[in-house]
């Protein structure tokens, strides 16, 4: 198999001559010459255009690129995962690829899914909001702010956030006027410590 590069501004020219058959002329930028050949058959690679799946993708909150193909969490480290946990991908929706590659990717997606399905119970991340009951003024701000309706106020007399239900976005923590809510691993002290560290004299000295 011989590959020939061509410049996009000078595409190959194909002429059908009744007497001589097909004639293909292409300027090879590496040789710096124009090549002419008489192929028996010319097969065009047709474009692969993604389906209009935006509504479906929005539903799962999976990202697409400018062309409309899906984007993985990380092209090298998490090639069949999405950044949302537990959603995997395979096939042409990702980018134009051969069947072999689609199958390999499907197998990868299955094995990634099996890492979850094979477990009796899974550990979820510790990034959840906790309430300091003594600071809670029962103002209902967190109840209104939470995009998932997780915080509730019942007979306890203060806001309660169920850790298993919390998605860990931290909206409640930054909205809470009484600073009664802390998002674990992203506490105010931790975030401020990061900016402090960037400007601390000792860090640059």
């Amino acid at each position: 198999m011989v590959f020939i590069r061509f410049d996009e501004s000078k595409p190959p020219e194909l002429i059908l001559d009744d007497a001589q058959g097909l004639s293909l002329t292409v300027a090879d930028p590496i040789l710096g010459r124009t090549l002419n050949m008489q192929p028996d058959l010319v097969v065009l690679a047709s474009a692969v255009i993604p389906n209009e799946n935006k509504a479906l993708f929005d539903l799962f909150k999976v990202p697409i690129n400018a062309e409309g193909f899906l984007v993985e969490a990380h092209s090298k480290l998490r090639p069949v995962d999405f950044s949302s946990e537990g959603i995997f991908m395979a096939g042409l929706a990702h980018y134009p690829k051969s069947l072999d590659e689609s199958i390999a990717q499907a197998q990868a997606a299955v094995s990634r899914a099996m890492t979850i399905l094979s477990k009796e119970a899974i550990w979820v991340g510790g990034v959840v909001a906790t309430v300091d009951a003594s600071r809670c003024a029962v103002c209902l701000t967190c109840v209104r702010a939470c995009p998932y309706g997780v915080p509730h106020i019942r007979e306890e007399g203060h806001a309660v956030i169920e850790p298993a239900e919390c998605h860990g976005c931290g909206v409640c923590a930054s909205e809470c006027p009484g600073k009664a809510i802390t998002l674990q691993h992203f506490t105010d002290r931790q975030i401020i410590a990061k900016t402090d560290a960037l400007f601390c004299e000792c860090a640059t000295a």
Partner: peptide
């Protein structure tokens, strides 16, 4: 941050204050 919703006015002002 997990989400920009976690950004507090305090964090932004603190960054400005820090320099």
């Amino acid at each position: 941050l997990p989400c920009t919703g976690r950004v507090d006015i305090l964090h932004l002002l603190k960054a400005v204050e820090d320099g």
